[in-house]
Design a protein around this nucleic acid. Structure first.
Lengths: 333, 333
DNA sequence: CTGAAAGCGCTTACAG
DNA sequence: CTGAAAGCGCTTACAG
């Protein structure tokens, strides 16, 4: 910038003005500066800008594991939404490890991100909030706060899971299913109840009391293996089940593969429903019946919260921002 | 830092010394400073540090589209490799658009990334190098330079595609296939030749001259649809083919789904082979035969080039860093 | 072993 | 319409 100013014969302040297109600059002066900028291939240093403006123009995104397609599809949408508003995104994964999660968040804050979007690992909240104290906006995605938190920098954005479960249950019941199992995650006490509550309520509304909860976390942490385990457990503990609602599409795909491997026809012997509406679900055999969450809309909301914080006027801890959800009927159920 | 210095009763330089664990500091002074750091929950501002050190501690990663699982799996590995060396990663996607690609790269550079890892869109090189002029390290992944470039800041890292194709061809030939088609991308002149050359050479080595190239880019840009189109085109133009080698796993999965939809059994009527060894390939029916690229090793190499540049001593334009590749035999061929 | 000065490349708050 | 000064939060290159 100093060089540009020298070449154009003006002060750096004037260069700053034309580069940022702010204030009033004489047309001729502007042209002079623009020429110098081109000639020197000058590109403003956003780091320096960020230092004085106290905002870096980048937001941090923390996911569990990018290999789970849900996160990669969401990441894609979040990148697009962020870029549409002139921001970058720094991604990191915590791999389901609360310690790693806290470190990664601390590191992102140190790096100067303006906000953090995170799919928190359940059980890591205490450490997380300790590390993020004083920082914000801090947007928690699809998360239920286990503890009362009164931090006006924390925001909540959730898909309407229990409504989704309700749609699934009604659909399965309409199909004639009466023995329905739901797969939930072992180390997710709150989220489990979230799903479970919706499930039990929806079943009760249809006059069904017989159902079963399957806890199937695979020790290796691979989502698809969890789905496979769910089918095994189902055969052992609840063989009369005719339908299985999986925690997400990755697991549902694992469940479909496992069912096939044990000679079960899907959906004739066992109907399987997923959650997330991943693109790949359309391609497997049979195409997956699932609950679609609007990823573009969710991403836009997340970026809105990240950039506007409290001014967004939504998504507070008291009143989470809920994104609606839609059943997609295909052939696995 | 100023506050910490005040609280500890030392100069900010001393605080800097203990925070960065450099130079010599008296034990007592160190303790004083550490206490102040804890009390104030001080976290060094990496932006400021980056400004003076002229390195931000983050590297940019530009992929085509995170929804393609190949990129998300690679992103995961790159994040891990970067973090292992204390770096962050800024991700962006160019969606196959050369203009967007150039903008995204310029923006990343402006943002102060220390290096850029990119899966370049073929045909966008001119614009890309113009925008990246003077910047480096600039690591091009799985890319062939269409033009001679003598820029010591540009590095090349590639999977050994043609060896992979060779392994596939030999495997298919051993299985008895003689009519083999390969799917390539339309707007990828160089990369096309890369694959094609390996393919033709391998076929010739087995004494086979009959083969066919399928160009099947779906207009909507969805990889899986490209694979579907490939099968359609194959039925129309080369029905005697018994095997199809797809450009990648996403396309292969689309091809499997399309084959199934037209009543073709895989692999009995049509053997299908992918490329990339995505996790999901194991789960579809039939499990995908594919070429595995070592993503962790590739990511480590990429980050090495990004951080050490020319000092890595490998991966130059004249002598690209080639990562070996391995056929994974499953049931789709 | 410790600190004062200068500066990284910008912007803010003024003054002219 | 334009510019000089101060400062964002650090580090570098010194001096003591």
């Amino acid at each position: 910038m100093k060089e540009v100013a020298a070449l154009a014969g003006v002060s750096i302040k004037t260069v700053s003005r034309v580069v940022n297109n702010e204030g009033v600059v004489a047309d001729e002066t502007r042209r002079l500066v623009q020429d110098a900028v081109e000639q020197l291939k000058f590109r403003p240093n956003q780091l320096a800008r960020g230092l004085v403006k106290q905002r870096s123009g980048s937001i941090g995104l923390v996911v569990t594991n990018m290999s789970n397609m849900f996160y990669s599809e969401m990441t894609q949408e979040i990148m697009l939404a962020a870029r549409a508003r002139g921001n970058h995104v720094l991604v990191a994964s915590h791999m389901g490890n609360p310690v790693e999660q806290a470190e990664v968040v601390a590191s992102l804050i140190s790096q100067g991100v303006d906000a953090i979007l995170i799919y928190p690992e359940v059980g890591g909240d205490a450490k997380l909030f300790e590390v993020a104290e004083g920082f914000g906006p801090f947007v928690l995605m699809d998360h239920i706060l286990p503890i009362a938190v009164s931090n006006e920098n924390i925001f909540l954005l959730q898909s309407d899971i229990s409504d989704g479960i309700g749609q699934v249950v009604n659909y399965l019941c309409d199909l004639g299913h009466e023995q329905i199992a739901i797969e939930v995650s072992a180390n997710v006490p709150e989220a489990r109840r979230w799903r479970e509550r919706g499930f039990i309520a929806a079943m009760a509304a249809r006059g069904l009391a017989t159902h079963r909860r399957i806890v199937s976390d695979a020790t290796n942490g691979r989502e698809t293996d969890c789905g496979g385990r769910a089918v095994e457990i189902l055969r052992e503990t609840y063989p009369e089940a005719t339908a299985l609602i999986c925690y997400n599409d990755m697991r549902a795909m694992g469940a479909v593969a496992a069912a096939r491997a044990t000679g079960l026809r899907v959906p004739e012997d066992l109907a399987i429903v997923g959650f997330d509406n991943l693109a790949i679900g359309e391609l497997i055999d049979p195409p997956l019946t699932t609950v679609s969450i609007d990823k573009a809309k969710t991403a836009a909301a997340a970026v809105e919260l990240a950039l506007s914080g409290a001014r967004a006027g939504r998504g507070t801890v008291q009143d989470p921002w809920i994104v609606p959800v839609q059943l997609v009927k295909r052939n696995s159920a």
